[in-house]
Design a protein around this nucleic acid. Structure first.
Lengths: 164, 164
DNA sequence: TATTGTTATACTCTATAACTATA
DNA sequence: TATAGTTATAGAGTATAACAATA
């Protein structure tokens, strides 16, 4: 298994992770006409590119999203962080645990409300976030590499128009 | 829990399933600039719309995709069907089991190679596929409802340019 | 009583590997 | 030996519910 991070992941390296409708011997029928199916295929490729860029199977897109959120929202409660990613409280707990075990975030008790913590990046966490952000940027660039620059902008606009 | 299928699912019915970057109190940082993150959010909405359109939690997008594939490729082997959806052999077995238990597909032994089956839709399966295809179409329409018709075409073109 | 977070538990989905039967 | 399919098993990830501490 290749645990080394690729400096520049390429979409062709991960094509095997998602089926390709054009290459297969099978007829995809109505699936080929569904936006949702295409979205799923692109998501699979994006996930695979991110995993390869990180070079660590434990470093999932969800966990990276949590680290980014903590970095941009120092002192936020777990429940807020989880909600922003569509997670249950217990799932948020585990995501924070993951980064705490790695020394990237810390829970600071809030004197005003001792039921909850504020979550903060450690110094090490700041460094990791900076390093991983670059990997994420590379993976995202690889995902949209088949598109012209103005097409990337248009794709993002259209996706955002759906999820807002 | 609402197990009844919605005749016309709407995206606003499932917004709670995916976080909304514009509404939240939190800063999404670089996440907001990543195509992959937007793809994920749209996929969550698409999944939720499909589940709601089906009205049956067991009827996952993957299982529906398998039924569509069987319908469009009568006699295909399990291994081919699985590969077309990026599944392992065991996962393909379970997906076919699901539809066989519901009386929608049947395994017919291939006289030429008795190691494998051809998978076929039953008469009941044909009816189910026709019925469910309409639900899928409605859910997909709901997902792209925020877009103009020409924008839907452009979105599909851009996604297909990535996954081919 | 309600809320934040943790823990216990169960469930789903998946892949790997061992197995059966064919080739 | 290799291949199609099945089964057993383990792992990851999730949610729900019960719990402890605090409000």
């Amino acid at each position: 298994m290749d645990l080394e991070a690729e400096a520049t992941p390429r979409i062709d390296d991960v094509r095997s992770r998602a089926p390709m409708m054009s290459k297969g011997a099978l007829d995809y029928g109505r699936l080929a006409e569904r936006t949702g199916f295409s979205v799923k295929l692109v998501w699979i490729l994006g996930y695979a590119l991110l995993q390869r860029a990180f070079g660590d199977p434990a470093l999932t897109p969800l966990r990276m999203s949590m680290l980014e959120l903590v970095g941009c929202n120092p002192g936020a409660q777990q429940i807020q962080l989880g909600a922003a990613l569509g997670l249950s409280r217990s799932a948020a707990t585990l995501a924070i645990d993951f980064w705490e075990e790695r020394g990237c975030v810390e829970r600071r008790t809030d004197p005003a409300d001792r039921r909850s913590f504020g979550i903060f990046l450690t110094e090490h966490g700041h460094g990791e976030l900076t390093r991983l952000r670059e990997r994420v940027r590379q993976a995202d660039e690889a995902l949209t590499a088949p598109l012209e620059p103005e097409e990337v902008i248009e794709l993002r606009r259209l996706l955002a128009k759906i999820h807002r």
